[in-house]
């Protein structure tokens, strides 16, 4: 496979995952705004921050308002992480690697692009927002489903998965990074109602309310949320889960190509040194410091993958 093709696959699936995550963050922000009295524009600031889009937003806007924030996240071409930018980027990369994709994956991707472009051509009204966000999640799910159902399990698939899980891990880490303080062991035994809103926000951002209840029961505990998002191996958006998937796929590449690359050693180290203990170890390390470290390590892993598989000259 060409290094360029590996690069294109990696970024196609990264962008697709990011589009979906951004849509989910908007959904969460909207939900909180609708159900909690007095939810402030401060909440949208933290959504922007989680999406990695706050600096760009501030450069072009004087204040954080709900409408402007949603528009920036959804359809601004100046925001490289907006849903529209991500879907366009995913589709551009899909065109680049067209020969590596099955017809069904390409058509799902192209159809997603056509639909998203059409729907996001104009500002989305409050009334249409739920449907639009739902459509984006469905469409990105369709591409993933076509990928899962029709692609050979070879190096092409590995790079697609690596892009997906690196982006997902990064996204989950950013969600925790922005809200880490509400997950710290509280001085009071019972969470305040503000804490409850924040906890709900976190779980919704990873579509994890149902899963959390199955694993930990009905009462929401910050310690359990941290465990769920960081170390739970059944939760498909947890850091530990994503790291395992990354290790698996980098491992498959290693056996396919007959040699393990440096990136494999890096993900193996991340998993063993940071994600194989219990949550107390994370709190002992310092939750904020831990997440900062994870973000750093994930960034470094991405760069190593580029080098190992000759993405660029």
């Amino acid at each position: 496979m060409l290094g360029k093709t590996a690069n294109g696959l990696f970024w196609m699936y990264r962008a697709l995952e990011r589009a979906e995550n951004t849509a989910r963050l908007i959904e969460t922000g909207q939900r909180i705004a609708l159900t909690r009295m007095g939810a402030s524009d401060e909440e949208w600031r933290s959504v922007l921050q989680t999406a990695g889009a706050l600096d760009g937003y501030i450069a072009g806007h004087e204040t954080v308002t709900k409408d402007a924030a949603i528009d920036w996240l959804l359809r601004s071409r100046d925001n490289p992480s907006s849903v529209l930018s991500c879907v366009e980027q995913a589709r551009l990369n899909a065109r680049l690697v067209r020969t590596a994709l099955t017809g069904e994956v390409w058509e799902a991707m192209n159809g997603t692009y056509m639909r998203v472009k059409e729907v996001l051509a104009r500002k989305v009204s409050e009334r249409d927002l739920p449907q639009v966000l739902g459509m984006i999640r469905q469409r990105t799910g369709l591409v993933r489903g076509a990928t899962h159902g029709t692609m050979l399990r070879n190096d092409i698939y590995d790079f697609a998965r690596i892009g997906t899980f690196l982006e997902r891990a990064d996204n989950t880490a950013r969600i925790i990074d922005v809200k880490y303080y509400v997950l710290l062991p509280s001085v009071t035994a019972v969470g305040t109602s503000i804490d409850n809103v924040q906890w709900e926000t976190i779980l919704r951002s990873v579509s994890g309310q149902g899963g959390y209840r199955m694993e930990y029961g009905a009462s929401t505990e910050p310690r359990d949320i941290a465990q769920f998002l960081i170390l739970n191996r059944r939760m498909p958006r947890s850091l530990a889960f994503c790291a395992r998937k990354l290790r698996d796929n980098l491992g498959f590449l290693g056996s396919d190509y007959g040699e393990r690359a440096a990136s494999y050693a890096k993900i193996d180290h991340i998993d063993r040194a940071y994600l194989s203990f219990d949550i107390d170890a994370v709190f002992d390390y310092g939750l904020h410091e831990f997440i900062q470290k994870m973000l750093l390590l994930l960034g470094d892993l991405g760069r190593q993958i580029e080098v190992d598989y000759r993405f660029y000259e």
Partner: peptide, 22 residues
Amino acid sequence: ELVEGHDLRVEDGRLCMRTTLG
């Protein structure tokens, strides 16, 4: 393979493409 100029170079008297394996 669908290649562009920047995927290619001449090595040891042959035209070569940059793959994930060199």
